[in-house]
Design a protein around this nucleic acid. Structure first.
Lengths: 201, 201
DNA sequence: TAATATATGGACCACTGGTCAAGTTTGTCC
DNA sequence: GGACAAACTTGACCAGTGGTCCATATATTA
């Protein structure tokens, strides 16, 4: 039926402009300051809009962070789905996994504070109402990683181990190394871990 | 010399009593509520003291959480230092590591919200002033784990991998499984990881 | 141009961790 | 016992947070 007949009228032009202004302002602030210093009010001020507008557009601070993160993750998602191996389909699971984790690490090193802010935002949620798994980026990453693990080693607890591997990135001591640009070291660590876990060297 | 002649006069009796009251109240609240709902004010009220007293005794919210965590970690530290194998000295590094991670997982499953609160408190720190590594419990755990790894596989980046293994526990999806009592599953995951990483099965 | 849906901003709210000066309690020494 | 200093307690207070609300302004469409 005409279910989505005219259900979603496009965002008004000024609204779209503000959305961009807010995203870009938040991005810029996060490049220069640790996440807990980037308050919604500061973002609003930097974007030249009122605080209410930010909440209007993104629902919450967490919503803003998720959106920002999603922007960054989209490219990686493409590469995984339809790009060339080893990131994309075609290579062995082990190689794909190593490549994927390296890519995530690199993404983290280029957007250090954002990753932290994203995580922080998810944790500082009102009560435990919305399960943190509701974060779409994490769900996707976890699905991919645990799929590859299951493919290579059906005997393992893939879901759990996928959480473990990804958990690493949310860890402060490691995140700060990431921020310091040490993503190669991290990727090497991942590679060692994954290779000895899934067999082959 | 009489360096510590009378340097540190003991805590006054009433102060010691309050310290205990606060610790016990915080413990109780954390057993029943997620950490972000356990504010310093609530703890103070539950302990029957003024808010100021809590800060006087523990310096900050984070200080309180660290102290609470330290109480729990002390027993484990003892077991590692002088207890029987495989946790204590004597067993192979691989076995000691598997045992240690299982013990930490179990500790976490018995004190779910505390672990989370502890982590949360470390992260929500004023700026990045005090490096999070300043958390003595984490420093100890990391030292132990990375020592064992280095012993078994001198070729690996032990420090990094130790961070990775421990990072797992601070991860929400895993922490919530821990809270659900699934520490056996976690321990098994660790065991698989460690065994295939450090050789032997 | 008029009508209507949408967007805006900032005063306002409840709450947070943290501070501090003023008052109270304790331990010690005579 | 009493006196005195040091240690301790307290709650009003502060700056800041994320989030709400709605009177007002603006874009769109007919």
């Amino acid at each position: 039926m005409g279910q989505n007949d005219r259900m979603e009228r496009r965002e008004r032009a000024d609204a779209a402009r503000n959305r961009q202004a807010i995203l870009r302002a938040a991005e810029e602030l996060l490049r220069r300051h640790p996440p807990e210093q980037v308050s919604v009010e500061r973002v609003a001020a930097a974007a030249g809009v009122g605080k209410g507008t930010v909440f209007h557009r993104f629902g919450s601070r967490a919503g803003l962070m998720v959106e920002l993160m999603a922007e960054r993750a989209r490219e990686l998602e493409q590469a995984v789905a339809v790009g060339p191996p080893p990131l994309g389909p075609g290579a062995e699971p082990v190689e794909r996994l190593v490549a994927f984790l390296a890519a995530v690490a690199e993404l983290g090193s280029r957007n250090g504070n954002l990753m932290a802010a994203h995580e922080h935002a998810m944790v500082t949620r009102k009560a435990a109402e919305t399960p943190r798994e509701a974060n779409p980026i994490y769900v996707y990453w976890h699905g991919h990683v645990s799929g590859l693990i299951a493919e290579a080693r059906p005997d393992l607890d893939a879901e759990l181990i996928a959480h473990m591997l990804l958990g690493t990135l949310h860890m402060e001591p490691i995140a700060s190394q990431l921020r310091a640009g040490e993503h190669k070291r991290l990727a090497a660590g991942f590679a060692a871990l994954v290779r000895s876990l899934l067999g082959d060297g």
